[in-house]
Computed example of a mutant assay.
Amino acid sequence: MDPRITVVTLGVSDLDESIRFYRDGLGLPLRDRDPDSDIAFFTLEGTWLALYPRESLAEDATVPADGSGFAGVTIAHNVAEQSEVDAVLDAVHAAGGEIVKPTQDAFWGGYSGYFSDPDGHLWEVAYPPLTE
Protein backbone atom coordinates (compact mmCIF):
# COMPACT_ATOMS: atom_id res chain seq x y z
CA MET A 1 0.00 0.00 0.00
CA ASP A 2 1.29 3.48 -0.84
CA PRO A 3 1.67 5.52 2.39
CA ARG A 4 -0.84 8.29 1.78
CA ILE A 5 -4.28 9.41 2.82
CA THR A 6 -6.23 10.93 -0.05
CA VAL A 7 -9.60 11.77 1.53
CA VAL A 8 -10.82 12.16 5.11
CA THR A 9 -14.63 11.94 5.19
CA LEU A 10 -16.54 13.24 8.19
CA GLY A 11 -20.09 12.06 8.82
CA VAL A 12 -22.14 15.17 9.62
CA SER A 13 -25.67 15.75 10.90
CA ASP A 14 -26.31 19.00 8.97
CA LEU A 15 -24.37 19.28 5.71
CA ASP A 16 -25.17 22.97 5.14
CA GLU A 17 -24.12 23.93 8.68
CA SER A 18 -20.88 21.99 8.34
CA ILE A 19 -20.13 23.55 4.95
CA ARG A 20 -20.61 27.01 6.48
CA PHE A 21 -18.31 26.12 9.40
CA TYR A 22 -15.47 24.81 7.25
CA ARG A 23 -15.86 27.18 4.25
CA ASP A 24 -17.01 30.44 5.82
CA GLY A 25 -15.68 30.03 9.34
CA LEU A 26 -12.33 28.35 8.72
CA GLY A 27 -11.78 29.44 5.11
CA LEU A 28 -11.26 25.98 3.61
CA PRO A 29 -11.59 25.99 -0.19
CA LEU A 30 -14.84 24.25 -1.19
CA ARG A 31 -14.73 22.50 -4.56
CA ASP A 32 -17.53 23.34 -6.98
CA ARG A 33 -20.62 21.27 -6.24
CA ASP A 34 -24.21 20.90 -7.30
CA PRO A 35 -26.38 22.58 -4.62
CA ASP A 36 -28.47 19.39 -4.41
CA SER A 37 -25.45 17.14 -3.86
CA ASP A 38 -25.26 15.29 -0.56
CA ILE A 39 -21.45 15.53 -0.36
CA ALA A 40 -18.97 18.40 -0.17
CA PHE A 41 -15.23 18.31 -0.87
CA PHE A 42 -12.58 20.75 0.32
CA THR A 43 -9.20 20.71 -1.42
CA LEU A 44 -6.35 20.70 1.10
CA GLU A 45 -2.59 20.37 0.76
CA GLY A 46 -2.05 16.75 -0.25
CA THR A 47 -5.55 15.49 0.57
CA TRP A 48 -9.25 16.30 0.49
CA LEU A 49 -11.70 16.74 3.33
CA ALA A 50 -15.18 15.43 2.55
CA LEU A 51 -18.43 16.05 4.42
CA TYR A 52 -21.20 13.49 4.02
CA PRO A 53 -24.40 12.83 5.99
CA ARG A 54 -23.57 10.66 9.01
CA GLU A 55 -26.45 8.21 8.38
CA SER A 56 -25.41 7.71 4.74
CA LEU A 57 -21.75 7.28 5.62
CA ALA A 58 -22.60 4.66 8.26
CA GLU A 59 -24.87 2.88 5.78
CA ASP A 60 -22.10 2.83 3.18
CA ALA A 61 -19.68 1.34 5.74
CA THR A 62 -22.38 -1.08 6.95
CA VAL A 63 -22.11 0.03 10.59
CA PRO A 64 -24.65 1.59 12.99
CA ALA A 65 -24.84 5.39 12.81
CA ASP A 66 -25.71 5.89 16.47
CA GLY A 67 -22.14 5.90 17.81
CA SER A 68 -21.42 8.42 20.53
CA GLY A 69 -18.54 9.57 22.66
CA PHE A 70 -14.90 9.53 21.68
CA ALA A 71 -14.40 7.63 18.44
CA GLY A 72 -10.66 7.21 18.96
CA VAL A 73 -9.75 9.55 16.09
CA THR A 74 -8.50 13.11 15.89
CA ILE A 75 -7.43 15.15 12.88
CA ALA A 76 -4.29 17.26 13.22
CA HIS A 77 -3.50 20.56 11.57
CA ASN A 78 0.14 21.58 12.04
CA VAL A 79 1.26 25.18 11.68
CA ALA A 80 4.66 26.77 11.13
CA GLU A 81 4.76 29.05 14.19
CA GLN A 82 3.50 28.78 17.75
CA SER A 83 1.46 32.00 17.44
CA GLU A 84 -0.51 30.43 14.58
CA VAL A 85 -1.98 27.84 16.96
CA ASP A 86 -3.65 30.63 18.94
CA ALA A 87 -4.75 32.42 15.76
CA VAL A 88 -6.37 29.28 14.32
CA LEU A 89 -8.21 28.50 17.55
CA ASP A 90 -9.40 32.12 17.74
CA ALA A 91 -10.80 31.75 14.21
CA VAL A 92 -12.43 28.45 15.15
CA HIS A 93 -14.08 30.04 18.18
CA ALA A 94 -15.33 32.97 16.07
CA ALA A 95 -16.75 30.46 13.56
CA GLY A 96 -18.75 28.72 16.28
CA GLY A 97 -16.43 25.79 16.96
CA GLU A 98 -15.99 24.57 20.52
CA ILE A 99 -12.54 24.88 22.08
CA VAL A 100 -12.11 21.52 23.81
CA LYS A 101 -8.57 22.05 25.11
CA PRO A 102 -7.12 25.57 25.20
CA THR A 103 -3.68 26.10 23.72
CA GLN A 104 -0.80 25.11 25.95
CA ASP A 105 2.67 23.64 25.97
CA ALA A 106 2.37 19.97 25.06
CA PHE A 107 4.04 17.07 26.87
CA TRP A 108 5.79 16.14 23.61
CA GLY A 109 7.60 19.48 23.40
CA GLY A 110 5.31 21.43 21.10
CA TYR A 111 2.33 23.73 21.59
CA SER A 112 -1.22 22.72 20.80
CA GLY A 113 -4.94 22.93 21.49
CA TYR A 114 -8.06 21.04 20.43
CA PHE A 115 -11.41 22.06 18.99
CA SER A 116 -14.51 20.25 17.86
CA ASP A 117 -16.60 21.00 14.80
CA PRO A 118 -20.42 21.18 14.86
CA ASP A 119 -20.61 17.35 14.92
CA GLY A 120 -17.99 16.86 17.62
CA HIS A 121 -15.13 15.77 15.34
CA LEU A 122 -11.92 16.56 17.20
CA TRP A 123 -9.15 18.58 15.60
CA GLU A 124 -5.75 19.26 17.13
CA VAL A 125 -3.99 22.44 16.05
CA ALA A 126 -0.30 22.11 16.79
CA TYR A 127 3.07 23.73 16.43
CA PRO A 128 5.50 20.83 16.39
CA PRO A 129 9.03 22.21 16.70
CA LEU A 130 10.36 18.94 15.29
CA THR A 131 9.37 20.10 11.77
CA GLU A 132 11.82 23.00 11.79
Results as ranks from 00 to 15, higher is better:
Gly120Ala: 07
Val85Gly: 00
Phe115Trp: 12
Asp32His: 08
Thr9Tyr: 13
Arg31Leu: 15
Pro35Asn: 14
Ile99Tyr: 00
Phe107Trp: 01
Asp32Thr: 05
Trp48Lys: 14
Gly72Val: 04
Pro3Lys: 11
Thr131Phe: 12
Trp48Cys: 12
Pro53Tyr: 12
Leu51Tyr: 04
Leu44Pro: 02
Phe107Met: 02
Ser13Ile: 06
Ser56Thr: 13
Tyr114Cys: 08
Leu57Thr: 10
Gly11Asp: 10
His93Asp: 06
Tyr127Glu: 06
Gly67Met: 13
Gly109Glu: 03
Pro64Ala: 08
Ser13Asn: 15
Pro129Gln: 05
Ser112Trp: 04
Leu122Asp: 05
Pro53Phe: 14
Asp24Arg: 02
Val7Phe: 11
Leu26Phe: 08
Trp123Met: 04
Ser18Asn: 15
Pro102His: 07
Gly96Asp: 03
Glu45Cys: 05
Ile5Leu: 14
Leu15Gln: 09
Val92Asn: 00
Val88Met: 01
Ala80Asn: 04
Thr47His: 04
Arg20Cys: 05
Ala50Cys: 10
Gly97Ile: 03
Pro102Phe: 01
Glu59Arg: 14
Leu49Lys: 03
Glu59Gly: 11
Val7Ser: 12
Asp117Ser: 08
Leu49Trp: 04
Gly97Pro: 04
Ala91Glu: 02
Gln104Thr: 06
Ile5Thr: 13
Leu51Asn: 11
Ile39Thr: 14
Gly27Met: 08
Pro35His: 14
Asp32Gly: 09
Thr9Leu: 14
Gly72Glu: 07
Val79His: 00
Glu59Pro: 07
Gln104Trp: 01
Asp60Tyr: 13
Glu84Val: 00
Asp66Ile: 07
Val85Asp: 01
Pro3Leu: 11
Ile99Arg: 01
Ser37Gly: 13
Trp123Asp: 05
Ala76Lys: 04
Gln104Ile: 03
Gly25Ile: 01
Gly27Asn: 01
Leu28Asp: 01
Thr47Gln: 05
Asp119Thr: 13
Met1Gly: 15
Phe70Asp: 11
Gly113Ile: 06
Ile5His: 10
Ala80Val: 00
Ala50Glu: 15
Glu59Thr: 10
Phe42Gln: 02
Glu81Gln: 09
Glu98His: 09
Arg23Asp: 08
Leu51Phe: 05
Gly113Tyr: 02
Gln104His: 02
Val8Trp: 07
Ser112Gln: 08
Ile19Ser: 09
Asp105Gly: 08
Ile39Arg: 13
Leu28Trp: 11
Thr74Asp: 05
Ala94Val: 01
Ala58Arg: 06
Gln104Ala: 13
Asp90Pro: 02
His77Gly: 04
Leu26Ala: 05
Asp36Thr: 14
Thr103Cys: 02
